[in-house]
C-alpha cells in the first residue's frame, strides 16, 4: 500500500521539500472558491481555508486514491461550511449574532451590475437552511456536477436535486424580471 506522501506526491509533484505546502499551493484557490461562493462574503474565507487544510493534514492517512484529492478537499470544505452556517443560524436565532446583510459595495473585482446581482442572490439564499443553500451554491455559483455535490454533501442524488430545486424556485421568483 502506498504511503500518504507517495499519493500526494503523485498528485501534486514531488519537487517541493514540503509536500503539505505543495498541496496547499495547488488547492487553496479551489477550496477558497467553494468557501466564497457558499458564504458570499470574504470575512470567513481564510478561516475556512485554514481549517480545511488543518483537517486535511490530519486525515491524509485515509486518502487512498490520488484522483480523489480534489473531491476529498471539497468534502472537508463543505463539512466545515455547513458547521459554520449552522452555528451562525443558531446564534442569529438567539440574537447572539447580527444577521449578515449581503453587500458587495466594497468588492473590487465585480462591476456594478454584478455586485447588485450577487447581493440579490445572497439575500435570497440566506433564507434557506445550510443543507439547502450549500448544494444550490455548489451547483449554480461553483458549477459543480450534481453527482459530485451528492458525494461531497453525503446525500443521495435525489435529495440534492430536491434541495437545489427549493432554492432555485425562490431565485427564479426573485429574478423573474431578468
Amino acid at each position: 500500500m502506498r504511503t500518504r506522501l507517495a499519493i500526494v506526491r503523485e498528485v501534486v509533484g514531488h519537487r517541493e521539500p514540503d509536500d503539505f505546502e505543495r498541496l496547499v499551493r495547488s488547492y487553496t484557490p479551489y477550496v477558497a472558491s467553494i468557501a466564497i461562493k457558499v458564504l458570499g462574503r470574504e470575512g470567513d474565507v481564510d478561516d475556512v481555508v485554514q481549517q480545511t487544510f488543518a483537517e486535511a493534514l490530519e486525515g491524509m492517512d485515509r486518502l487512498r486514491e490520488p484522483a480523489a484529492v480534489r473531491g476529498w478537499l471539497a468534502t472537508i470544505t463543505v463539512r466545515i461550511l455547513m458547521r459554520q452556517l449552522r452555528r451562525q443560524r443558531v446564534l442569529e436565532t438567539f440574537a447572539l449574532a447580527e444577521r449578515w446583510t449581503p453587500t458587495m459595495l466594497g468588492t473590487q473585482v465585480a462591476g456594478g451590475e454584478e455586485r447588485v446581482t450577487l447581493a440579490r442572490v445572497y439575500q435570497v439564499v440566506e433564507r434557506f437552511s445550510p443543507s439547502e443553500r450549500v448544494p444550490w451554491a455548489l451547483r449554480y455559483l461553483q458549477g459543480e456536477r450534481l453527482d459530485a455535490i451528492a458525494e461531497v454533501t453525503g446525500c443521495s442524488l435525489a435529495t440534492v436535486k430536491r434541495r437545489i430545486a427549493v432554492v432555485q424556485a425562490a431565485i427564479e421568483e426573485a429574478f423573474g424580471d431578468v
Binding site: 477558497a32 472558491s33 466564497i36 473585482v109 465585480a110 462591476g111 461553483q142
Partner: peptide, 8 residues
Amino acid sequence: ATARNLER
C-alpha cells in the same frame, strides 16, 4: 460568470 468575480 458573476460568481467568478468573487474569486481571489
